[in-house]
Amino acid sequence: MSTGWRAQPERGSRRLIQVMTWITLRLGRSVTRWFLYPICLYFLVFSGGTQRISREYLQRILKRPPGWKDVFRHYHAFASTIHDRVYLLSGRHRYFDIRMEGASALHAVLAQKRGCILLGSHLGSFEVLRAHGLFDQQLPITVIMHEAAASNLNAVLHSLHPDIRERIIPPGTPDTMLAVKERLDRGEMVGILGDRVFGGEKGITCDFLGKPRSFPEGPFLLAALLQVPVVLFFGLYQGGRQYEIHFEPLADGIHLDRGRRSDSLRPWVERYVSRVEHYCRLYPYNWFNFYDHSDDARASHTVV
């Protein structure tokens, strides 16, 4: 039933997304970026639920009641990063001005050949990092994410890059984590977004910007079981054609207390959350987790 809920409303739009992607590539970024204004305006008028989430978040981060301009800016940043995915996935990542912070720390971790979990969030753009990994092959990144079937947008965007499917591990199958282990054993990186709990997944409730929110313990448990380091990343959109990717080592290894697992994972989850909050404050309009926790039950039955 949950798959029906996910797939149905989006089905009609695949053709539209294909057409828009084609136009985006034909006319180029500077022209098609103008389209983002009417699109964001449309969503400003017609997206009640999303706007409620955006306003509630903006209120907490800006510490003042957000106006429609704030919501518009929030939507526009989000739309920009999706628009840019078309160029990033079709090999035009050099068009962007991408700055890296902390890359040497990441390389030091990778030099140990133990693999590493790259833990991200719905803050900023994940694609900017993946494009780096895909096109500059010294950074092979595999990501755990729902494949094309779950999203028309991803189906169309992923078709822009022929090899991308080999770099995606779908969550919620019996062998998901075995596939993850194989990549890590080869010394590669596996990317996970750590700020969204799916249906039956175990979560740890932490304070996030002054409100309790559940975060998955899975990525941390995985790091502990396989004894691999965790590095945080944030692909922040700074406007124009500028992105900044931050890497921060989080844990060299996570120790698990038998029988008191959640207790031993909690400090790591809290550390992660405090870094997400830190970057939220620096780039408040980069928070793209337009997803209401009260929707948890019907969002998905996926188990990671």
Binding site: D175, M177, L178, G200, L221, L225
Partner: peptide, 11 residues
């Protein structure tokens, strides 16, 4: 069981 459980079994 979830896929992390499956990993633990494998280990």
């Amino acid at each position: 069981l979830d896929s992390i459980d499956m990993l633990e079994i494998a280990l």
